[in-house]
Design a protein around this nucleic acid. Structure first.
Lengths: 360, 360
DNA sequence: CTATTTTAGTGTTTCGTTACACCAACTGTT
DNA sequence: AACAGTTGGTGTAACGAAACACTAAAATAG
């Protein structure tokens, strides 16, 4: 093993310049030296395989070129896709991404954020869309920038610097309208606890669409799985399964079910099958997210697509702008993009016969 | 925003001691001070909400308490689960985990590793099980420790410090034997490129089991999807779909298919359906990994379970031991655990009728 | 031909923490 | 009372990179 570590000093010696010049080369202050000097330094860097010590850079500058990303789950490929795209976008701007999986637990989230701040991260993208950012307040006071993914923030009063989200209400409306158009009148909802802004938005959208059609959404048709706190999507598919079984066992079961995300929807398939219902003949199911699996399963899932790649690009761009020039901050920092209804095979018109008795 | 950053000095002043003492408190050298002094310092830390600056710690000590984890994909929930468990295990020992998604591209892997090393990481867990570690050699020479997940390494000659893996051959054998036991004689394989040790091991196991039963595994029944390089599991399910369609279109199609992982298997379901085959009536399908979805889909997937949680615990434990006391290193650092056959509904005895013509 | 500006660098201090050498005040021993 | 040993600390010099204040030499102006 090569023992003596290569630092800026070794490079300087090899190139016959001072460490300051090497530093200038690294940081692109090309106007401070001749091209010949610069290339000599570059060559030394190359041959010595020098990489700047980020700890030292960070200690000097006071911050790291790092963005934290706190996601609610690693079991749902949707968040895997989000992480992947955020990471790609950030890297193009020279930033690294630290991915943390907090299972939507505020305590975990705060612990991660604390850790990230201590390691020099200036900004965090939070994807859990909690009702309150209280657990981040004292961190924001210490200068941490917070971006909200998956929920719309209205303005900076809460301390959030920017947000990018699909229009959750619109997503809920698209899904509900699709079912209404097919003739469904009794529609159930299977989701995790409606205690995050994203879920509240979606359910509001559903409710709006239904009420416009003169239909009520009784609480008895909304099934919320998972504990009050500390739940993830880890068992999203399991929850979907249980939820659908419960809804379909009601006195007057729904003819269609809107789920909180595609993993719930896949679980919903299983729950429906458990009771002998066929999708979409006996029950229609709509997902949310449009993960890759959605077009693979049988029947292919009708769902609401989130343009993940574009959303990731946008939030990274906004956040980096805020980091690098914390000037103007208002409008255009709180973005809401349109979701898209993807109609596949899991929805159909309701069967009017056999309305209130299981097929099983 | 509170402006003056709280450092060890502020804590020292508040507690009326020197910075050295605060440092001793932080690092648990309790024998260097009275209990009373210690609690005074602790109190100051609490009230000031002090967190040590990791960059400075790292600069001083020369390394970070951080482990890198390079996974092949974020689209396959299996790797999400691995990341989650590795992260949990590492945190219990006071380490952080940096998750990198390199899509099995050696160039990406090397870039990530370089970055990790520059940021002070001493050790990396590599989960892509490549044939060669050449692209890590110069990094290992610089002191980077490398642990292999998902492939068995025989000894330290390659520079790998430890490895934990399911016994891939045994996994392949279990899967093949299960199919043989059901009466299958013409068995196909759908997998990504067999250019990683894990895949080679699995296919070898399959081949061994078949040849013991006097059955040959012709190349024509092995479908390898994805490009030669730079492929991930991102489209694993898509690849599975295409692969099965191709195998089932052969002159003498297989009656059962072994897939590279559960995502391929889910894609295989779709591919079989595309041609009008029913699973398991017309074609049996076996997965690998046992992700949560496997028992949700219809039919529930017969697969080979990897004990992810235990494997993650083990590799983290081994690796941290190597980091903290780089003494003895041999045996017991290269661990292979037994996979488990989980029989569900995607496998059945072959139909002897209609052998070589599609049902569609 | 001198005065001024520009170019192309250099030397030193600093970031926050920790290791290490040091030391003052006690305790116990003879 | 003198001495050694222990306890409970303190002061300071690093770690590697970068900002800042410099300056020697060259270019340009008058």
């Amino acid at each position: 093993m090569a023992r003596e570590p290569i630092g800026i000093r070794e490079v300087a010696r090899a190139a016959g310049v001072s460490t300051s010049t090497v530093s200038n080369v690294i940081n692109g202050r090309d106007d401070k030296m001749r091209a010949e000097t610069r290339s000599r330094v570059l060559e030394a860097i190359q041959t010595l395989r020098y990489t700047p010590n980020t700890a030292a850079q960070q200690l000097k500058s006071g911050h790291a070129t790092t963005i934290g990303l706190i996601i609610p789950s690693t079991a749902n490929p949707f968040w895997g896709a989000v992480a992947h795209h955020v990471e790609r976008a950030a890297r193009q701007s020279g930033y690294r991404v630290l991915i943390c999986n907090a299972e939507r637990d505020p305590v975990e989230e705060a612990r991660y954020a604390e850790m990230l701040l201590a390691s020099g991260t200036q900004a965090i993208i939070l994807a859990s869309s909690p009702l309150s950012f209280d657990h981040f307040h004292h961190l924001m006071e210490r200068g941490l920038k917070l971006a909200a993914f998956d929920q719309r923030v209205r303005d900076m009063t809460g301390g959030i610097t920017c947000s990018v989200s699909v229009d959750q209400e619109m997503g809920g409306m698209l899904a509900a309208q699709h079912l209404l158009g097919l003739g469904h009148r009794r529609i159930g909802v299977v989701t995790g606890p409606i205690k995050t802004n994203s879920r509240i938005g979606r359910v509001n959208g559903i409710r709006t669409a239904l009420s416009r059609a003169g239909i009520d959404l009784p609480d008895s048709l909304i099934w919320q799985g998972g504990g009050v706190i500390g739940f993830g999507d880890m068992e999203g598919s399991e929850l979907g399964r249980v939820g659908v079984r419960e809804l379909l066992s009601r006195d007057e079961p729904p003819t269609a079910i809107l789920t909180g995300n595609d993993m719930y929807a896949l679980g919903a398939y299983a729950g429906a099958r458990d009771l002998g219902y066929r999708v979409p003949d006996d029950i229609s199911i709509v997902g949310f997210d449009d993960i890759v699996l959605s077009e693979i399963v049988q029947p292919p899932l009708t769902t609401i697509r989130q343009p993940v790649s574009a959303m990731a690009d946008t939030i990274v761009r906004l956040l980096i702008r805020h980091i690098e020039q914390p000037t103007g901050t208002d409008a255009e920092s709180f973005i809401s993009v349109a979701p898209q209804l993807i109609v596949r095979g899991s929805t159909a018109s309701p069967r009017t016969v056999l309305k209130s008795q299981g097929v099983s």
